[in-house]
Design a protein around this nucleic acid. Structure first.
Length: 570
RNA sequence: CGGGGUGUAGCGCAGCCGGGCUAGCGCACCUGCCUUGGGAGCAGGGGGUCGGAGGUUCGAAUCCUCUCACCCCGACCA
């Protein structure tokens, strides 16, 4: 491809509404342009990278035995009503009517459609296992789209759905996908972790997320320093601290804490560490108040509590409720004398003589002891793990915390959708059985953004070779005036292109500085610079975008080296 | 949906509070000269319903009302 004939509208200045680096760089590199909130045009460079990811995904899905299909973007409401998600899904599901006033939605995911397809066609255990996938545009009317392709409303996703005769067979399908995902993200050149995850609204029995490690990641993940345990913080288990404190209970003591409401304020006012206090949170679980007790320096994990209580909704209570439950304004709640249902975190169990709120304005209590002073309903793991917590799986390790971008998610669905939509088959004994399902997503467009988030420097994008829009750029110094330069460039261009190297020839009538800046910005991994001075010695320069390594080589050497590096990625 | 903010040339912004010349600046763009190994220089030039509608006024980018879009924080979420 000749740069002068192509379409790469780069921009020097950083657009003001782009917050994260991948969004800024994708705009500046001319990969994407915004059309509306969370909706983007993919320009040639952006599209080429997306296609690279798609092809890797396609190859690995095929290798794992999945079969590609393509389902519609527009889906009829009836299917969603049948699975009851028409009511559950909420405003994220973009709904509309056709000219006959029939209801439709833009598909945010395809469990209903694929299950409908399969229930019509699959009748026998002989037709399974079956795994169908597609790579397709999805639309989710996000509450708050942001960060460019990282959280768009329209995005490209690979979604796969497995169908098996029973739970054990479904586990095998799941494992195959898990391994395929590892291969996919390895081939993309990404630094990632597979972590245990909560299943959320998709439902099902268990799931793993594939997280690209990056500071800007929206998810927190914990991993063990010793063993293979890794989990989203939403899911990561806290191990109860082994030994309770031995201290003798001291007499309860009331202290005045005028205007001190937060853990920070009270702990500094009383000169005691936050870890020796208990924080008391009042929540509403399906309109019933619940009290959660946590060590002062710990945070509540609402998902754990919600799963524990088995409630539909869980949210922090408003000031009125707090006052009704505790008899005091917000900021002075404590477990002593409370009548409501109380759940204490495991870390609170061993605490002795702690400080907490007094359920009275401007009063806190010291030397509280749960078994003596409170009526705790139950103890459970309801907090977020923190850096340095002991690993829940092995005895040696500590948990380390990371930020991650979720690029893939695999779920064991069980029979949630197949039951709702009556997807059944006849087993070898002629008995009707429910199909077991799994679903497996990869955010293709998000993967490109995550890759940039992880691979950039002050000059721009630093693409890994497998998903770079081009493998190599030939930057000609004074292409228009220097005939020797022009001829050398053309020769290199032809040789590389013949060897199926994806090469971009910068034949523009621009000064060298402009070409170098653009080449760095768009992140092409390999750059051959052809200039009159080096060419007089029969040499060109080969520079690697990552690390900046520069070699002076003959044209033949440079071509061979580039061919070799490209061949190495398959 | 709640709170905050911004809409002025393709991009980034000033002007608005205290209404008043022809609405400016940088980058980008076009023409010419010059230059050619890290976003050059000089000269000339094009481009604006000041987000939209209504109002106040002799006069509105500026003040008032409504409205739309976008951004940030929050709840939500693969």
């Amino acid at each position: 491809m000749r740069y002068s004939q192509y379409f790469i509208p780069t921009v020097k200045e950083t657009p003001s509404d782009a917050e994260v680096i991948s969004h800024q760089l994708m705009l500046r590199a001319g990969m994407i342009r915004k059309l509306a909130a969370g909706i983007y045009n993919y320009l040639p460079l952006g599209l080429r990278s997306i296609r690279k990811v798609e092809n890797i995904v396609r190859e690995e899905m095929d290798r794992a035995g999945a079969i590609e299909i393509l389902m519609p973007t527009v889906q009829p409401a009836e299917l969603w009503q049948e699975s009851t998600r028409w009511e559950q899904y909420g405003k994220e599901l973009l709904r509309f009517r056709d000219r006959k006033e029939a209801e439709f939605c833009l598909g945010p995911t395809h469990e209903e459609v694929v299950t409908d397809l399969v229930r019509r066609e699959v009748k026998s255990y002989r037709q399974m296992p079956l795994n169908l996938y597609q790579i397709q545009g999805k639309f989710r009317d996000e509450i708050r789209p942001r960060f460019g392709l990282m959280r768009g409303r329209e995005f490209i996703m690979k979604d796969a759905y497995s169908f098996d005769v029973d739970s054990a067979a479904a586990d095998l399908s799941y494992d195959k996908m898990y391994q395929a995902y590892r291969r996919i993200f390895e081939r993309c050149g990404l630094n990632f972790r597979a972590v245990e995850a909560d299943t959320g609204s998709i439902g099902g029995t268990s799931s793993h997320e594939f997280m690209v490690l990056a500071e800007s990641g929206e998810d927190a993940i914990a991993s063990c320093s010793c063993c293979h345990y890794a989990a989203n913080v939403e899911k990561a288990e806290a191990r109860p601290f082994a030994a309770p404190e031995h201290a003798e209970p001291r007499p309860l003591e009331r202290v005045a804490t005028p205007g001190k409401r937060t853990i920070e304020e009270v702990s500094s006012f009383l000169s005691i560490p936050a870890a020796t206090m208990v924080k008391t949170l009042i929540l509403m679980a399906d309109d019933q108040p619940v009290v959660a007790l946590l060590r002062g320096d710990h945070d509540l994990n609402e998902i754990k509590l919600k799963n524990l209580l088995g409630c539909e909704t869980l949210e922090m209570a408003g000031d009125e409720v707090v006052e009704r439950v505790t008899g005091a304004p917000t900021g002075f709640a404590g477990p002593v004398g409370l009548k409501a249902r109380m759940v204490a975190d495991l870390a609170v169990q061993g605490m002795r003589n702690f400080a907490t709120g007094g359920n009275e304005k401007d009063i806190h209590l010291k030397n509280v002891n749960l078994e003596r002073d409170c009526a705790v309903t139950r103890f459970a793991d309801i907090r977020n793990v923190v850096h340095g917590d002991p690993c829940p799986r092995c005895d040696a390790g500590e948990l380390e915390m990371w930020r991650g971008i979720e690029v893939g998610h695999v779920f064991k669905l069980g029979t949630k959708y197949s039951k709702a939509l009556s997807a059944t088959y006849l087993d070898a004994d002629g008995k009707e059985q429910i199909i077991f399902m799994g679903c497996y997503g990869i955010g293709v467009s998000r993967t490109v953004a995550a890759c940039i988030e992880q691979n950039h420097d002050e000059n721009g994008i630093v693409f890994p070779l497998p998903i770079a829009p081009f493998h190599c750029i030939v930057s000609a110094v004074n292409y228009t005036k220097e005939e020797a330069v022009r001829e050398a460039c053309e020769a290199i261009y032809r040789k590389l292109a013949d060897a199926r190297v994806e090469v971009l020839l910068d034949d523009r009538d621009e000064r060298p500085g402009v070409k170098f800046k653009d080449a760095d910005l768009i992140g092409i991994p390999l750059r051959i610079v052809v200039g009159a001075k080096n060419l007089a010695e029969g040499k060109v320069e080969l520079k690697q975008r990552r690390g900046g390594e520069v070699e002076l080589l003959t044209i033949a050497e440079a071509v061979e080296k580039v061919k070799g590096m490209v061949a190495a990625i398959g």
